[in-house]
Design a protein around this nucleic acid. Structure first.
Lengths: 187, 187
DNA sequence: TTTTCTTTTTGACTTTTATCAAGTGCTCCC
DNA sequence: GGGAGCACTTGATAAAAGTCAAAAAGAAAA
């Protein structure tokens, strides 16, 4: 992987010195995904963290009617993982799939442990988890449909561009009709 | 701490052999809490996991009107921690407080790391996290008030005994009136 | 036991969101 | 260009939960 691409990750995680960057570089893999490619399946333990360089991905589960329920949407500079499976090392119930052709970086949990063992400064990699969980936790609370949409509008403009409203509605746990009405009112 | 009390933890985590039990014992502290004592304050990083031997505790945050919003309720044999703060090592926004006089065990994240460094078998301590997060994640989803109450009825009978309905309603993110009506309907 | 205070229930009404059905606009593509 | 399909919008109505106010039931205190 090139240093130029590494700089994207460094922007996300904060800077590391030369030596740390070299160590980090050795653990990171570059992956090209075609639209529709799946990088996590239900039943697997999510032991890889991915970083979106370009393109977009989404995490979802199938409900009893086999409809996709959107868990999270990812674009450039987002960290991609099933947070719960990653942390507790239990089987995921979710899919993670490329929504477009995408370029991503990959780092394994083993690599992260290895780096931390080497230098405590890599404890900062824990912020990967922080980033993923803080975003999702907003939707956990009993916020109104309005507030949820406004949150996207303020913090995730990018996903409004990339993904169809039906997917965004599912992500916000509301019906497409409700999202459509709110959008008219708020904008 | 006595071996008898340790057996409670072993029931929760699965068995360890003699040597592992000795190592574990050294890292665990026994704590008596008086009703109202606070073991986690907003602004602190939650770096201790607690196990309830007897009594009860609750985790909450203050909303803008300074009302307590219940995050989690704990009784005998529950593990107590702010999951997000514990995992991501960021400042908690929550309180954790004894609801009654309680006896709890305490183990620090440092101790957990130390044990794991010593033997991979202590990786099982990760199930502490699993237990705490899986319970909470049920309420994240857009389940109806009915389903949430039924979940409590099936999986947390004990908290219905210990805590007033107002607290349980807040925990389930509904109004006390709604919980009262559902209770009449479901029971 | 009576009084007081708190918790829980009940009733009438409002707000929010879901549901169902139909309409508009758009793109793909033969 | 004329469907066929898809995404989004709009309207009418229903269901779920919240709000406010008051009554009933329980628990604690005098």
């Amino acid at each position: 992987m090139t240093r130029e691409l590494l700089s994207l990750i460094l922007e996300s995680l904060g800077n590391f010195d030369e030596e740390e960057q070299s160590l980090l570089l050795k653990e990171i893999k570059e992956i090209h995904l075609a639209k529709g490619e799946i990088i996590l399946n239900p039943g697997e333990v999510c032991s890889l963290a991915h970083f979106v360089v370009s393109g977009s991905l989404y995490q979802y589960k199938l409900n009893t009617d086999l409809d996709k329920e959107i868990i999270d949407l990812y674009t450039k500079n987002d960290w991609v993982l099933d947070h719960k499976s990653f942390v507790s090392r239990t089987a995921s119930q979710h899919f993670i799939e490329a929504f477009e052709d995408s370029l991503i970086f990959e780092i394994s949990i083993q690599s992260i442990h290895k780096l931390i063992a080497n230098s405590q400064r890599f404890l900062r990699l824990g912020s990967i988890l922080e980033k993923t969980s803080s975003r999702l936790s907003f939707f956990d609370n009993n916020n109104s449909a309005d507030e949820k949409y406004r949150f996207i509008l303020n913090h995730r403009q990018d996903i409004l561009q990339k993904f169809p409203l039906g997917m965004i509605a599912s992500y916000l746990k509301m019906k497409p009709e409700t999202l459509s009405r709110i959008r008219k009112k708020v904008t």
